[in-house]
Design a protein around this nucleic acid. Structure first.
Lengths: 193, 193
DNA sequence: CGATTCTTTGAAAACAGTCAATCTGTGTGG
DNA sequence: CCACACAGATTGACTGTTTTCAAAGAATCG
């Protein structure tokens, strides 16, 4: 699969030779998940890294009032997962479900640590992923604490315009921390402008 | 300084021998910052890791309407900084200012990469820091999108009870994404219960 | 003591959530 | 090809939460 190799080269600025990549790649397994099926269910330990080759997923949890909250939306070239469960080995509080038929590359925690030992570039790639993830999280936090619902939606349109084509509005609304009704009204208002 | 060595051993579960630590430590420099002085000003590139030995700081930015928003609050054993500016070498959007007289250990980006090459445990420690930071960010995002102002404040009381003693309410309010007025009213309401 | 910073409060307005009803489009099975 | 079900989007009326602004009160520091 060229997809992952391209991703490593392009998004992590860590150059990996074909040989090295082939060795790394041999530790991944291919997995298909059909629409509406779960990659992770609340309460399970999720001890894999997974790279989304094709499809779309959402990560969410159910609060004590029975309401769903979308924590992440994933499309091609993203890494669905739960870092906390992976790192600490604790049961996950989240569900990850396929919104379209999906194809994934998975690598177990054992193979991850093995590869990190054997293959410094791979360790470097993981470091880069964490860096990128940290930077993105920081931006989302800043947006949440400082912007209105309308501004947050407009920021999402700028940063991830694909999301609108791939995800229904009520999931996007939940991801932004607002209700579908409010998002609908915001869109109406933006049309008038 | 034992403080940093203890931190590495305790919080990253990476054991470091005294010799190793001494070598690592030799790459840090000691820095004092007086109350109200800045560790970082908007527009500067911040290419250091810094470990807070003593004191308290806040990271904030000023939006287009001239309003301040507190992005992070730091006390002893935290790492004030801007990961994005460090990683990408871009000018920071944030200010970091001392709220009390502070003492810090600083390490430059050059020394960081040098140490990562020479000293695998140090690389491991940085990886752990990023992991921890990712997990914490995730929790904050979840809190922001799914909890009311009151619940967010109660979560903060649980997770960081020290903050109340160290930071004025209006900074805590801003950190939570609410106004000082609202926080004041929430506290009043909680007293009645 | 005076200056500054921090906190509280009231009243009005802006904002977002709730609930229920309706409207839209899509696809499936008969 | 139609009828129907289903998921998604919109809307109105209402409720609740949070912000705004201005003013006053409390605490802290030099």
């Amino acid at each position: 699969m060229k997809s992952l190799h391209n991703y490593f080269n392009r998004y992590t600025s860590v150059l990996i030779s074909d040989q090295e990549f082939e060795y790394i790649f041999s530790h991944f397994t291919f997995k298909k998940i059909k629409r509406k099926q779960f990659l992770l269910s609340q309460g399970e330990v999720f001890s894999h890294f997974s790279f989304l080759l094709k499809g779309a997923m959402r990560k969410y949890f159910v609060d004590d009032k029975g309401k769903e909250h979308v924590v992440n939306l994933y499309i091609e070239n993203w890494w669905p997962g739960d870092r906390e469960s992976f790192v600490l080995g604790t049961p996950s509080a989240y569900n990850i479900v396929a919104l379209e038929d999906c194809e994934l590359l998975m690598i177990s925690k054992e193979n991850t640590t093995k590869l990190c030992r054997e293959c410094p570039v791979f360790a470097k790639v993981l470091l880069k992923l964490d860096e990128k993830s940290n930077i993105a999280s920081q931006k989302r936090i800043v947006s949440n604490i400082s912007s209105s619902a309308k501004d947050r939606y407009e920021e999402l349109l700028e940063n991830y315009p694909e999301f609108l084509q791939r995800f229904p509005q009520h999931h996007i609304a939940s991801y932004l921390g607002i209700t579908k009704d409010t998002l609908s009204r915001i869109r109406k208002q933006l049309l008038k402008e």
